[in-house]
């Protein structure tokens, strides 16, 4: 759509370049008593836990689907995903909505169920360390890096890997095989 031309467009280039690369903001949240974080730019919104519809024959970490303003959005239980057990819902439980890349440049909105959301922190690039070779019981593929604010360390989650279709499909197949062998008896 054409716009009314109001100036000479000279300042346009300059205003674009104000983003600071060295400091990035992260959203921190609690899962099973531990603090995790994701880049704030990945987060679409945070909503309260509403009615979730269970989807049968799916692995445990898929808690179900919710109605997000008319769209059906799957919710992943992060605690269950990281094998910390199924998270119990309470007043502070939240769903963090993130966009995950799919193949061919498409995105899917996925909800992450967390026990509570803490705060938004700013971490300078100096305080980001690569993921350790050995995690403390967390699948290292889920760890993007380690972050530090003051003396507090926390895991920066690799959303892409957590929700990678490949892994979910694998798990789902396992679940199905388990199910079918159970019913065959």
């Amino acid at each position: 759509m054409a716009e009314l031309i109001t100036g000479y467009n000279i300042e346009y280039e300059e205003t674009k370049e104000s983003h600071d690369e060295s400091n990035a903001q992260y959203l921190t949240f609690l899962i099973a008593g531990e603090t995790f974080a994701v880049g704030i730019l990945d987060v679409n919104e945070i909503i309260e836990v509403s009615e979730m519809t269970d989807v049968p024959m799916m692995p445990e970490f898929i808690r179900g689907v919710i109605n997000l303003r008319g769209a059906v959005v799957p919710v992943i239980d992060l605690a269950a995903r990281m094998e910390r057990g199924r998270s119990e819902l309470d007043k502070r439980s939240c769903i963090v909505l993130v966009e995950t890349p799919l193949s061919d440049n498409q995105y899917q909105v996925v909800g992450m169920l967390v026990d509570s959301v803490n705060e938004i922190v700013e971490i300078s690039q100096d305080h980001i360390q690569p993921a350790p070779a050995m995690g403390d019981g967390i699948d290292t593929r889920f760890i993007k890096a380690m972050g530090r604010v003051d003396e507090l360390f926390f895991v920066l989650l690799d959303i892409e890997n957590i929700l990678s279709n490949e892994q979910i499909t694998n798990l789902e197949q396992l679940k199905r095989m388990h199910q079918s062998s159970a019913t065959t008896l």
């Binding site: 024959m57 689907v65 059906v72 799957p74």
Partner: peptide, 19 residues
């Protein structure tokens, strides 16, 4: 019919969702 999305691709028995 609302598509369930890629995550549920390959899920048999359920073809979609509705609000």
């Amino acid at each position: 019919i609302k598509p369930l999305g890629k995550l549920f691709q390959g899920l048999k028995g359920i073809s979609g969702a509705t609000v």
